[in-house]
Amino acid sequence: MIRDITIGQYYPSESVIHRLDARVKFIATIAYVIAIFLFDTFWGFLPAAVWLLTIIIVSGIPFRFILKGLKAVLFLLLFLVIFNALMTPGEVLVQWWIFKITDKGLTNAGFMALRLSMLVIGSGMMTYTTTPSQLTSGMESLFKPLGIFKVPVHEVAMMMSIALRFIPILLEETDKIMKAQQARGADFESGNIFRRAKALIPVLVPLFVSAFRRAGELAEAMEARCYHGGKGRTKLHPLKFAARDYISLALIIGFVVGMGFVP
């Protein structure tokens, strides 16, 4: 079940998109997200859609895998569509009891669905094509200037990458603890919402205890291996701009400027 959700996963491949510098991909994603929120006309969406499609094709990631990412937000998507379709005032097309569907409602719902899907797929492309460690070192490098305002950029990046590594381990642990408590007669499946929430205490307490124990042991292991914060640290794979990164950056700038001419 949890494995079905592809969003946030890395899809290993050797495409140009995969090899791009994480910083370039990060900037591109931001530009893209701004683009889809700025426009609500067909002509406004077209460039972003073409842009997204190109990236998907070049990255070589199968469409099936990408669509699976949408599954995670399916409910939100449906809710937004229905909400928009019913709640927008305008010329009534269909009416049934107190429900009215208006022409404006329909267009709103359509754009909303399109916008959200494109947002999920677009930001998904970033994580599919970038390893978590590249992602965090890219962010660390981009946000480095914030260091002068005493923002602990390196520490935050390190925390993110450790969290990413431990998510699967903690999920497995949750499963183990739930099974152990089920073996002692715990019931997580019946009763109302309060009963179910209460039934989770025997899972959450051991989970927190174990997370803290792991954190302590990990901190010790990191210290034992000479970790002393970001000062004087080097990287096995330092981020380096190649020709493809400069070209991509030029394309992004072109895209952003181009958006200014969209009617």
């Binding site: 183990k176 152990a180 073996a183 007669g185 715990a186 019931d187 025997p202 307490v205 051991p206």
Partner: peptide, 28 residues
């Protein structure tokens, strides 16, 4: 059919020893 998993002490959660052991009978 009772199962004692590996490192079962990692599943203790109650405030006292007595309450923790009574968790199973309570569920019954």
């Amino acid at each position: 059919v009772g199962i004692v998993f590996q490192y079962p002490e990692h599943q203790l959660f109650e405030a006292t020893v007595g309450k923790d052991v009574a968790f199973g009978p309570g569920n019954l």
